[in-house]
Design a protein around this nucleic acid. Structure first.
Lengths: 338, 338
DNA sequence: ATGCGTTGGTTACACGTGTCAATGACTCGT
DNA sequence: ACGAGTCATTGACACGTGTAACCAACGCAT
């Protein structure tokens, strides 16, 4: 609509610091000094003003790539995110983390592995020369991978997977704990045969597999894996054949899956918790809205700000010693469904 | 633990293409040609092999910043995200979008406005020289802002807010429609005095305000705004004073808020839908689990792939004509709570 | 007049890459 | 034997920035 003039396409090249210099009648170096508030060099106040005005008038914006090329380092934090919504708990955590990093003046780059194998994915990451990498464990990186990243300028490599990697700071978040707490809770309350609901959705194995394994490891519990998709149909289908499974308890990947299953079981005429105990995970608020109220496993996640400042610290002080911290705490919360 | 040698700190500088050239015994130009599979120039097969091997052995990884500096353009898509979890519907949409963009070989950069005013935020964005910007409307950008971004190399500026911006491709997503549909549905069913639940959480006004306004615009409805936080306490508090409000219906920002309120109302002894009709929005799966089943407004969002390919198209063919497309369709879904 | 510190600025290089134009080495047709 | 034409490769420049080293002019005491 508001097409400019008839001018065909002189794309009005983006102004550089040289343009600013010309306009202010000074050298490019002076421009750089002024705009970066360099204190080591003395520039007279009138000149400073002229430069600032020229920059303003031209709408000058420095070129981040050129800048970090010259500097030899970036402020990029790479955050390879899984390509499936992991659940509300992690979504909010990631969101929080991003903002905390942004506040510390980092540039957060989302980068998926995109089906590449580990080495290729890491190479792709390294191209950006990130100053830090926070891997959630979508791809498990080898010691060699960590070395590659570090040589490419990464001063901190943080893995949040279930297992630490040599050379990387590890924030171990062992999802097994979640499964273990849930199963233990059920066993305590006299249940023996536990069905563990495993999402059919791809990409969630990263979290669901350890949770299942954790449940398996609890003494006194026989567990059976039950694949189920996140849909009413799938839940109904599972509920329909429930009686034949001879289970007295269910532990679902998630409160959402647990709610879905519990409703389907009730619709099937099964009583919760008398006939079957149901427990979820993540302690979502909505889990408390059903009746009976859903028992769950509360997970103590590190706060986004905390992790961000930890990253920041690691960047400033690239301590040789690779720290391992266990940041996960999980505890069963008894409500009414168990 | 596995501290390397006693070597103090020779940080083993990251290898450049010059290093590869030296090792392969060729010039840097050749390396570039080989590694980029340049077809215009013919390089003998043996040389190609030598170069590839040298690169492999050194673990050479090109420097993205240098590359895009030279190229004069990037593949960065800037995605300024609101700093509050907007809701499951949008979370999954954004996630989908990111992956779709990644598949098209774009680099997605999350960048928050960080409390800066519009101009400053846009300047910060422009530093990255993104090839495209997808604004969700967290900050409303002026025509001047769009011009700034375009001069900085953005070939597509896409706003998803409620209103188009001159110069930008606009994917209008008018949230008012949602409120209007909800209110109309309630009026149709004989309700007159509608309480609209508005989240207390900051940052959601972006979505909640238009939805409220949309409800206000419906003839035959008296609407009252009811602030409520996303917590059981807040919901209970609102429910406790419900009778005094003399309302016969509630429209909540979200299915989640609706569920929270509905449960609180029921706990207060009010019958749904007899005493009060409740309708939510976003058509979340869990909304169907409560009894009565929650009525809602289903929102037809563009798929992530669709938007991504639209971005891609806009980047390749920077059509002068700025398109406006209305991508939002909303319809009320009647279940049991209204 | 010479030496010297201070003020206010500039010149020149480096960062790592892509690519145009030029250059040898070889083959070939006459 | 000699220019014409391919083949394989290289030298040199540009992209936009930050900063160390240098320099002109000035004031001022020797």
């Amino acid at each position: 609509m508001s097409q400019s003039s008839k001018s065909p396409e002189p794309p009005a090249p983006v102004p550089t610091s040289a343009d600013v210099a010309r306009r202010a009648g000074v050298s490019r170096a002076t421009v750089s000094y002024v705009l970066n508030n360099a204190e080591a060099v003395r520039i007279s106040e009138p000149t400073r003003r002229r430069v600032r005005e020229a920059a303003e008038e031209l709408g000058y914006v420095p070129h981040a790539a050129a800048r970090s090329l010259r500097a030899g380092r970036t402020r990029i934090v790479l955050l390879p995110t899984p390509h499936v919504p992991i659940g509300p708990l992690y979504s909010t955590f990631l969101n929080e983390l991003q903002w905390a990093l942004r506040r510390l003046d980092y540039t957060v780059v989302q980068y998926g592995s995109l089906g590449l194998d580990g080495d290729e994915a890491v190479r792709a990451w390294a191209e950006l020369r990130p100053v830090a990498v926070i891997s959630l464990g979508e791809i498990t990186l080898s010691a060699h991978n960590v070395a590659t990243l570090k040589r490419a300028g990464a001063r901190a490599v943080i893995t949040m997977g279930p297992v630490g990697v040599p050379g990387a700071h590890a924030l171990v978040m062992d999802q097994q704990e979640v499964g273990a707490r849930a199963a233990a809770h059920l066993v305590e309350r006299g249940r023996r045969r536990i069905g563990v609901v495993v999402p059919r959705e791809e990409g969630l194995e990263l979290f669901s597999a350890p949770r299942l394994a954790g449940a398996r490891g609890v003494a006194g519990a026989e567990v059976e894996a039950l694949p189920m998709a996140y849909s009413e149909e799938s839940a109904a289908e599972l509920a329909a054949r429930w009686r034949g499974l001879h289970l007295d308890a269910a532990f679902a990947y998630n409160d959402e899956y647990a709610m879905l299953l519990m409703r389907a079981l009730q619709d099937e005429g099964l009583r919760v918790p008398e006939d079957v105990a149901v427990i979820g995970a993540d302690d979502l608020l909505i889990g408390r809205l059903l009746r009976p109220r859903l028992s769950t496993v509360r997970i103590e996640m590190p706060t986004g700000d905390h992790l961000a400042s930890l990253v920041d610290h690691a960047v400033r002080e690239p301590s040789q010693v690779t720290q391992h911290r266990d940041l996960m705490a999980a505890e069963a919360v008894h409500r009414e469904s168990t």
